[in-house]
Simulated assay, not measured.
Amino acid sequence: MRSYVTTLIPLAVLLGSVGWVYQDASAHARRGIHIYFSVESIELSKPATWALGCLCLWIVFLPLYLTCRRQAS
């Protein structure tokens, strides 16, 4: 039972933060404020792209999103 809890808590944090990133980026986009990041051929500007990045590589994309969000506001 305990191993399920130690697996479910990080999974819930991951999915919750991915959902928040998508919702927050969508809300900003509706107001005309796009959270944007670009380096060479990589471009992050759509809510789905931010959410997918957070889902795949959370430890990199969540702090990057928060930084870009602060600069966009």
Rank of each mutant, 00 (worst) to 15 (best):
T6K: 09
Y65N: 01
A29E: 13
L64D: 13
F61M: 15
H28E: 14
H34M: 14
R69W: 06
I9Q: 03
A51E: 03
Q23I: 02
A25V: 13
A48Q: 02
R31Y: 08
V5K: 05
S38W: 10
D24G: 02
L55S: 00
A72W: 04
S3F: 14
L64H: 14
R2C: 03
L66Q: 05
I9Y: 11
S45V: 09
L57F: 15
P63Q: 07
G32S: 02
M1A: 08
A51M: 11
W20C: 04
T6G: 04
H28W: 05
R69L: 11
V60W: 06
A25H: 06
R69Y: 07
C68S: 15
P47A: 04
S73V: 13
I35W: 02
C56N: 04
G16I: 12
Y4W: 14
A29W: 07
H28I: 00
R31M: 11
P63G: 08
I59L: 09
L11P: 10
Y65F: 14
L8W: 15
L14N: 05
Y4M: 10
S73C: 10
F61T: 12
L8I: 09
L14G: 07
D24H: 13
H28V: 01
G16Y: 14
S45M: 09
E43A: 06
Y22G: 00
R70S: 06
W50H: 00
P63R: 03
R2S: 10
Y22T: 00
L64S: 13
T49W: 03
T6L: 10
Y4A: 08
Y22Q: 03
Q23T: 03
T7I: 08
C54G: 13
H34P: 01
L8R: 00
L44R: 01
Y22E: 02
W58L: 03
